[in-house]
Design a protein around this nucleic acid. Structure first.
Lengths: 280, 280
DNA sequence: CGTTTGGTTGAAATGTGTCAAACTTTGTGG
DNA sequence: CCACAAAGTTTGACACATTTCAACCAAACG
C-alpha cells in the first residue's frame, strides 16, 4: 500500500505515427481507472495556493475560485490522462503525485509537473492537444471544466491574469529546456534539471529536510534531458562522485546546492517565482 | 540599398554571467538605432491579420485593435531589441523582417519570429525578461505599450483570448523544439526546423512561388537546432543531395515537400493553425 | 519465491564537435 | 566600378561525448 508521493508530472508528444490517428480521434477523456470523489475544500485550496504563488489573488477572487467545481480523481502510476489529438473538455490541477508528458518510441518528456501545477491549462484555448500527459506515480488530480474556467476568467480579470501567467511560466520553462537540451553537455544538463526540480518542489512545499522525494526513473530523466538511460546513470554517478548530490532510495538530496547550481548553470529567473528565495 | 526581407525573428537566453547583471539592470528599451514613425494603418493591419489567423476576431474587436497606438521602428540587422533582465514597458509585433532570440557564448536560439508574430508578448504578465530578442535582418517593429494591451484585454475578452492563444501557440512551439533538439538526429532535426519555418512563413503570407526567403545563416540554424555550424552545413548538403531542398542564394525551396515532412517527422498540429492547409 | 523493474558496468560503434584552412559571396570604400 | 575586407560556406582530419548492446545485479512486487 504505497502512499501518495509528492512528485512530478510530465508531458510529451506522442509521435506514434500510423496508429495514433485512430486513437487520437477517439476524443473525450482518456481512459483511466479512477476513484471519483468530490472534495472541493482540499482541491481548491491547492489551486488557490498555486495561483497565489504565481500572481496576486484577492480574497474575493479566492472565494470565487473556491466555488469552482473540481472533480477529484485518483490515477495509478503510468496511466495516460490526456493523449495527443484529444479534445478534452476539462483541464486539471495536480493535487498530489507526479505527472509527466510522454511519447512513443523515441519518447521525449517535455515537462514535469508537481502539486499545484496545471499541466494542460492551455487546453482552454487550444482545442486539440498537441501532446500527451500521463502519471509517473499514483496521482490525485482535480478536474475543472473548461466552461467553468472560461466563465471565471470572464468575470474576474485578476484570475484570468493568474491563469494566463501560469501558462506563460510554463512557456518560459519550455524555453529553458530547449537551451538545456540544445547547448549543455550531459553533466550540466542533468544538474540543471535537478536544480529545477528541487526549486519547483520546494516552491510547491514538497521538500522536507532538504530532501526531495523524486520518484523518477533514470530512464524518465533521460527522456527529459535527451540522454540515454545508461548515460544518465553515469552522469548521476559523476554528480554523486563530485559530492553534489546523494540519492538515497527514491529521494534526492542536494549535498552542495551552490555547486549543483554552478554545475547546471542554473539561474531561476525563468521560473518567475514571486518570492525568489531559492537558497537552499 | 537592401529592401526589407520577409524573414524570421529569434529569441534566446543570454547566459552571459558576470557582465549581464550590469547591463540587465539598465532597464527600459534596449539600445537600437531606429527611425521612428507613426503609421498605425499598416501596423495594426499586420496585427489584426495575425490575430485573425489565431482566433476569431469580430469587426468590432478589429476596430478596437485598429485604435491601438503602435509605434513603428526600423531596426538594422543583428541588433538587440530586448535583453534578458530587462523590464520593458512595451511588447512588439514583427511587421517585416526577421527576429531571433539569442545568447552569449554557448548561444541557443529558442525561436524564430516572422511578420505578425508577437515575440515578447509574455512581457505583459512576466515583468522580467528571461531571454533576449534581437533582429536577424533589417526589421520593422510595431511597439505597443503594455498598458494599452492590458486595457484592451480588459475591455474585450475576445481580444484577450486571441492574445492568450497566441502565447499558448508559442509555448506549443517551444515544446516541439524540446522534442526536436532532444530526440531527433541532425538530419531529421534540420528537416523539421525547415518544415516549421516554411509553414509559418507560408501562413504569414511570406512565401511566393514555393520559395521562402530565409535570410538565416547556417550558424544561426545551428544555434536553433543545437548543432555546430559545420554539421548544419553537412546536413543541408545531405538534404540537398536527397533532393528534398534547394538553397539558391539566401532562398529556400522545398523540392520534395512530402519527403521533407517525412524526413523531419513533421506534424503541424502543434502550430495550431486555424486553417491547416499545409500542403505545399 | 519467482518475476519484473530499475540500476550498474564494460566494450565497441557512431554521430557530432572541433580545428584549421580554402573558397565563395556579400558588402564597403576608394 | 573595382578592389579589398568581411562574412558565410565548404572541406578534411581527428577527437570525443554519447549511444547502443549485452550482461549482471539489486530491489520491489505479486
Amino acid at each position: 500500500m504505497r502512499s501518495f508521493i509528492p512528485g512530478v508530472f510530465t508531458s510529451y508528444p506522442h509521435r506514434q505515427r500510423g496508429t495514433s490517428a485512430a486513437n487520437a480521434s477517439s476524443a473525450g477523456n482518456a481512459p483511466m481507472e479512477v476513484t471519483k470523489s468530490l472534495c472541493p475544500a482540499f482541491s481548491s485550496d491547492v489551486l488557490i495556493r498555486k495561483l497565489r504563488r504565481v500572481a496576486d489573488i484577492s480574497d474575493d477572487d479566492a472565494a470565487a475560485l473556491g466555488g469552482l467545481t473540481i472533480q477529484e480523481k485518483d490515477v495509478p502510476a503510468n496511466r495516460d490522462i490526456v493523449s495527443e489529438g484529444n479534445r478534452p473538455t476539462n483541464s486539471f490541477v495536480v493535487l498530489d503525485g507526479s505527472y509527466k508528458h510522454t511519447g512513443a518510441e523515441k519518447r521525449q518528456i517535455t515537462s514535469f509537473f508537481v502539486a499545484g501545477d496545471l499541466p494542460d491549462l492551455h487546453g482552454i484555448h487550444l482545442a486539440v492537444m498537441d501532446c500527451s500527459f500521463s502519471s509517473m506515480t499514483p496521482v490525485r488530480l482535480g478536474l475543472i471544466r473548461h466552461s467553468a474556467l472560461r466563465s471565471i476568467c470572464e468575470q474576474r480579470p485578476r484570475v484570468a491574469t493568474a491563469f494566463w501567467r501560469s501558462t506563460l511560466i510554463d512557456a518560459a520553462i519550455y524555453r529553458e529546456w530547449v537551451t538545456n537540451v540544445g547547448r549543455r553537455d550531459a553533466y550540466a544538463r542533468t544538474a540543471h534539471m535537478l536544480c529545477e526540480l528541487i526549486v519547483r518542489l520546494r516552491f510547491a512545499g514538497r521538500i522536507e529536510d532538504h530532501v526531495a522525494d523524486l520518484p523518477i526513473t533514470q530512464a524518465a530523466l533521460g527522456d527529459a534531458v535527451g540522454l540515454s538511460a545508461v548515460h544518465v546513470n553515469r552522469t548521476l554517478q559523476a554528480l554523486r562522485g563530485d559530492g553534489l548530490i546523494a540519492t538515497p532510495g527514491t529521494k534526492l538530496r542536494a549535498l552542495d546546492w551552490p555547486g549543483l547550481v554552478q554545475a547546471g548553470e542554473f539561474d531561476p529567473t525563468y521560473l518567475h517565482l514571486k518570492d525568489p528565495d531559492v537558497a537552499f
